[in-house]
Every structure is written in C-alpha cells, then in structure tokens.
Amino acid sequence: MVEYLLGVGILAAVYAINALSLNLQVGVTGLLNFGQVAFVGIGAYSVAILDSHDVPWIVGFLVGAVLAGAAGALVGRLGRTLASDYWAIATLALAELVRLVALNQDGFTGGAQGLSAVSGIWTGMSTTAREAATFATIVVVLGIAYLVARRVRNGQYGRVLVLIRENPDLAASLRHNVVSAKVRVMALSAVMASVCGGFYAMYISFIGPGQLLPFATFLIFTMVVVGGLGNTTGAVVGAVLITVLYDGTRFVRDWIDVSADQAAGIRILVIGVVLLGFLLVRTEGLVPEKVKAAHARR
C-alpha cells in the first residue's frame, strides 16, 4: 500500500513538473502548445538512448535539455508568422513527427518496442526504500521547477508574457520584443519538460512511441485547465488531482464488467468529460489566476 501511494506520488510529481511547463506556455503566455509531449519525449529518449550506450545519466539529461531547448526555441520562432490557432496545429504536427521518428528509426530508438531496461535511480536499495528515495528526489526537482516557474510568472518577464497573451499589439508597441519573449519561454518550458521526461524514463525504466501519443499532451492540458490557467500553484493542484483520478480509473474493471478495450475508453472518456466540464462551467479552474493591477505594489 505504501509503495502504491509512493508510486502515485512520484507520478503526480512528474506530471506536476510537466504541468508547470505547459502552464508557462498556455496559461501565462497564451501559446497553445498541443505538442508538449514532444519535449518530454526528447528528454526521455535522450536519457534512454545514451544510457543504452553506458553514458552516465547526467549527460543524458544535459543532452535532452539542450535538444529540447533548441526545439522549443525553434517552435517559438515559428509562432512569429502563424496565427495562434494554426500554430497549435503545427505543434501537434511536430509532436507527431517526433513520434513517427521514434517509431520508424528502429536502430536508434528501438522502434515500436521502445527502449527498455533504462538504468533506474537509487538502484542499490530495497524496493520500498527506493520508492521513498525516488519520491524525495522528484519532490525536490518539483520544488525547484515550482520556484523557477513562480519567479518567471511574478517577475517583470512574467508581466510581459501576460501582456503578450492579453494584447500582443500593445506589447509590441511598448517595445517589448514579442518574438524573443516567446522563444525564451518556449525554450525554458521545453527544458523543464525534457527533465520531466528523462526522470520518467528512468523511473519506469522504459520509453516507447506509445507514450508519445497526443493523449499524453491532452492529459497535461486537463491538469492545467482544472488547476486554473495561468496559476502556478493551480498547475500543481491540477496535476495531483488528475493523476489520482486517471490512475484510480485503472481499477475500473474491478467495479464494472467491461473488456480491457472498453475500460481504456472509459478512462479517456472521464478525462475528456472533466476537461469539457471545466471549460464550460468553471473556465478559470480551481485556483484562478490573480492578475495584479500594474501599480498595486509600489
């Protein structure tokens, strides 16, 4: 039981980092990134591929962060010429491209089977102690990610990002460099997502193209919307709640008699209905964003 709870805790923390990253893009800056899972995948595959060549994990994380950051910056630049809704579709396409490469470059990524036997963390310990140590580690990482995200959101840069979301023309006319601000927030978020992906691959010691499906991004969107778009604390709250809900519905077959296929449908349906419900009834989420007046503190 303790191990199960620790497992859910670890998963929630991993998702929370992912949600913090997506919230910086969607919630704060208004950049609808439907391809978030691509950054996670870049991080996860970097760690897994380098690990299979016996390179230390820290190098995998660094390579993943650099690659994801570069990809994020490029996607951010693409946002320069594209209306925001079509940019969203372009990001979805990019994520599918990453998945196709992972699926088809067998020699490199293990193809459809993915890469298994990725070295874990704290391998020298007994099972429960290992789970506890892993949980402690990811909570520390989450803490750092939270502080970074909050600092970005509440600082001068965060105010520029919110202005870009609310009124890009005004931001440009105030001589803020809109493109550069977008590129930087995309790069930062991508690095956060890649760390989350690398950690995930090490924790479950596996990564495959099945984990890069668009539904993975959709799950994170649900967390951010339920928590409250634009609110840093909300992203974490939403991530914990949705992880518990999504992981809890794994046991749906214990309650009702359905096939495995139908059970998978039910799990996805629950998440979709929660997201639609929040968008329709409580768009601002559980912890609404507080936009301060410009001169509130002085």
């Binding site: 609808l32 439907f34 539904f215 959709f218 998440i271 997201l275 639609l276 968008l279």
Partner: peptide, 8 residues
Amino acid sequence: IGSLALAI
C-alpha cells in the same frame, strides 16, 4: 482546447 476535448 474545447474542440480537442470534444474530439477525445
């Protein structure tokens, strides 16, 4: 986002 949710 809502249309994506509906699709799902």
